[in-house]
Amino acid sequence: MQYEGVLTKMETEYGNPIQYYLVFESSFLNVNQLLDKNIAINFVGFQCLNCGKKKKIFRQGFCYDCFYSSAAVGDWIMKPELSTAHLGIEDRDLAYEEKVQLQPHIVYLALSSEIKVGVTRKTQVPTRWIDQGANEAIAIVEVPNRYLAGITEVALKNHYADKTNWRKMLTNDIEAVDLVAERLKLEDLIPAEVQEYFYSNKNDLYQMDYPVLQYPSKVKSLSLDKTPNFEGKLTGIKGQYLLFEDGTVFNVRGSEGYVVSIEV
């Protein structure tokens, strides 16, 4: 069978194991069902996720013009401490920024390689942790806006990584850490204005079970720009990556906006 459409990040369903879906305009594919089967991924073209035009993708599924104009990719997305909607100050589109920034946010610890600290909207739990390939994750605070989450993350970056080592994550080279105990160590590290939101006694550790038949010992990243046609046996899915028998890994989210055909 052949499926064709614009790549967006895989939709997920929390379970044992996690279920993954590739969703196209007129069809969808349960990727778990492709495990241990050969699949072909062929590059067809580009389509900006924002304007829909067939323009080369610049970053995050957006063409160059949209990346520098759309409110959905403002600097506060990657740096929550730059959020200003709580002050009524617009970055690119105040209505959009109020909708996204002025809602409950979680600051968390996740274990996807070593311990990392991160921020996500409460509505994205546990999706955010699945997307980054965390084996375990736990909330530190729940705050009413993105700015408070951002300044908490900044304070904790001095003690924890804020990025996932994707190679370690995909080879399952994960430290053994008690995240519940780790959370109790950091209460005094968070800003004074966030102290009242600290989670101290909640038993809310999430554990993720990924559909992986075999982890690779080494990984090599598939770029559709360099290799527009690829075929291999699927041996796992973790984070937003497809893992293949020969050690090739394909970052679906990193290829958003690429139009592909998939043959199974």
Rank of each mutant, 00 (worst) to 15 (best):
I106G: 00
K122P: 12
Q207I: 12
E98H: 10
F58P: 13
T152P: 06
A137H: 15
V177H: 05
V107D: 08
G45W: 08
N158R: 15
A72T: 07
Y147G: 02
K238I: 13
V177N: 04
S112G: 11
L109P: 06
Y68T: 11
K53T: 04
P126H: 10
F198K: 14
E256S: 15
T171P: 07
F230A: 01
T12A: 05
N229E: 13
R92V: 03
L94C: 07
Y197R: 13
I115L: 14
A139W: 00
Y215F: 10
R146A: 02
Y199P: 01
F24D: 07
Y3L: 09
V44P: 05
L189I: 04
L7A: 12
E97K: 02
K226G: 01
S261V: 08
R121E: 15
C66N: 02
L102Y: 05
D162W: 15
M10R: 07
R121Q: 14
L111P: 04
L205C: 14
V249D: 13
C63A: 06
P216N: 02
T171A: 09
M78G: 10
D75P: 06
G74N: 07
G52C: 14
I130L: 10
G150C: 09
M208V: 07
M10H: 07
K163N: 14
V107T: 11
I190Y: 05
Y241N: 10
D93Q: 10
F58Q: 11
Q33S: 04
L29N: 06
Y215T: 06
Q60T: 10
A40M: 09
E97A: 07
C48I: 15
G88N: 08
E175V: 08
G74M: 08
I18K: 03
Y241H: 11
R92Y: 08
M78C: 12
E256I: 11
G61K: 03
